[in-house]
Simulated assay, not measured.
Amino acid sequence: MPRAISPSDSDPAPLTPAASPEPHPTPPGPHPHDTHTGTRTGTRTLVALRLAGIAGILTSAAWLVGDILLLGKPMAAPDQYPLLTAYDGMARDSLAAMLPASTTRLAWGALLGVLTGPLYLYACRHFRHALLPQPRRLALPPFLLLTAGYALAPFAHGSFFYWGQAAKAVHESGADSAALTTLPGDLATVLFIPYAVLLALWVIGSVWLAVLVLRGGTALPRWMCIANPLVCTLIGTLVTKLWPGAMGTALQGAALSVGNLLLFSLTTAVFWKRTTA
């Protein structure tokens, strides 16, 4: 009689394969699209920096020509223009250079600066990029100070036309009037106020910029601490004072433009060599 089959007598249950250990998740790498996007962004930044440098150089050159047209004539003597006896210092020297100039010459000298002035604001992005990756609280103030100075510059530059024309009108009128004689001086007072504010902004912003660059950790090497409006304007002043002959006379009122031409030439040369932003 067949006996019942017990569980122990049955065939062994098929073995189930042991579960393989879960592989450790690998961190996701950069998505190809992200890489391309970053490359495109860096390329656009480099192109923008190079265009800003070109804008700064061309604008400085235009202002240099404008300064030569406004103030590059040999200074007239007081015996030619008795009006000059009422002034001294920088005011007298500026008037002495503008009085012999024609109206057309003065107009073009002023317009070259006024019409190209907005390009200086675009060139100022060099100051912002120069301090990357410094914290915003440190990098933004000097950028704003320097940019504000460049925003005031076209008004100051263009005002020389009205100042010179007023002096020419007073001289040619031959009128012995205290009100007319003081008119150029009144215009000069208004003209020098934005110049004083401009220079104050440049001094503060330049010192701030130079200190941060000297500390290191910026987009500029430490030696580029000289690349600021204050230092470059001082160099421009030396160039215009020491250059002899007819060229020295032509450049006698162009210290700021010579300094800016040097400044943006330096920053453009440094940023142009970069392969990444």
Rank of each mutant, 00 (worst) to 15 (best):
A101C: 10
A110M: 06
R137D: 15
P154T: 03
P78W: 03
A97K: 08
M75H: 13
L112S: 06
Y150C: 06
L70W: 04
L145I: 01
L70D: 12
D93W: 00
A86N: 12
L69I: 14
F160A: 12
G158W: 02
S94A: 15
D88R: 13
A91T: 13
G149R: 06
T103H: 14
T116K: 09
L140F: 07
L71I: 14
T103Y: 08
K73H: 15
I68G: 03
R128W: 13
S159D: 11
A148D: 04
P118M: 12
G72R: 10
A97R: 10
Y122Q: 01
G149W: 04
L69P: 09
V114H: 02
L152E: 02
F161R: 09
P133S: 14
L106I: 12
R92L: 09
P74I: 05
A96E: 03
L131I: 03
L119S: 05
H129L: 07
P82K: 11
I68D: 01
T147K: 05
M75Y: 05
I68Y: 02
T116Y: 12
A151S: 06
W108T: 11
L111F: 12
P74W: 05
R105P: 01
L95N: 08
H129G: 01
G109E: 04
L106E: 08
F161V: 04
F143K: 00
P154N: 02
S102P: 00
P74A: 09
L115S: 03
Y122E: 03
S94K: 11
A86W: 08
A107C: 04
L106P: 03
S94L: 04
H126F: 15
A76N: 09
L95K: 06
Y120I: 11
T104G: 10
G109K: 06
P74M: 00
L99C: 05
P118S: 09
S94P: 07
L95Q: 09
H126S: 02
C124K: 08
W108G: 00
L145K: 02
A151M: 05
Y87Q: 05
L152N: 05
L144V: 07
R128S: 13
S159M: 15
P135Y: 05
F160H: 08
G72K: 07
Y87A: 03
A123E: 12
L84Y: 01
T85R: 13
F161S: 09
H129S: 09
T85H: 13
Y120T: 12
S159C: 10
Y150W: 13
A97E: 04
A91G: 11
G109D: 04
